[in-house]
Simulated assay, not measured.
Amino acid sequence: MEDFKYISENGYLQPYPDFPPEEPKDLCNSDYSGPFNFEVFVDPNGLKNPWEYSPALNKIYIDIKHKFPINFSVKSEANAGKLFVRVMPMFEEDRYFHELVHRCICHEQLQDPLNNGSGERRIGSFKFHFAAVQGIPKLVAQHIIRCDNINARYFGDKNEGKRLSVVIPLSGPQAGTDSVKEFFQFVCKNSCVGGMNRRPIQVIFSLENG
Rank of each mutant, 00 (worst) to 15 (best):
A175D: 14
D43K: 07
C106E: 11
P35K: 10
P17V: 06
E23N: 06
R146N: 06
F68T: 04
I7D: 04
C147V: 04
R163W: 06
N209H: 12
D31P: 00
P17I: 03
V74N: 09
E99K: 14
G161T: 05
D148S: 13
D18W: 09
E39A: 08
V133A: 14
F126H: 10
E160Y: 13
V101K: 03
A78S: 02
G135Q: 03
E52R: 12
I150A: 05
E22R: 09
Y16H: 09
P200I: 08
P35L: 05
Q109S: 12
M90L: 15
R95N: 10
D18H: 09
P17W: 10
I145R: 01
N71Q: 09
A141F: 07
E120F: 07
N190Q: 14
Y154S: 07
G119M: 05
G195R: 01
P89G: 00
A78G: 10
S179C: 15
T177D: 10
A80D: 04
Q174A: 13
N71G: 03
P69I: 11
L114P: 00
N49E: 14
D112N: 15
R198H: 10
G176D: 09
T177V: 04
N149S: 15
E23I: 05
N29P: 00
Y6P: 02
N37Y: 08
H129C: 14
S179V: 04
L207C: 10
C106I: 13
L164M: 01
Q185R: 15
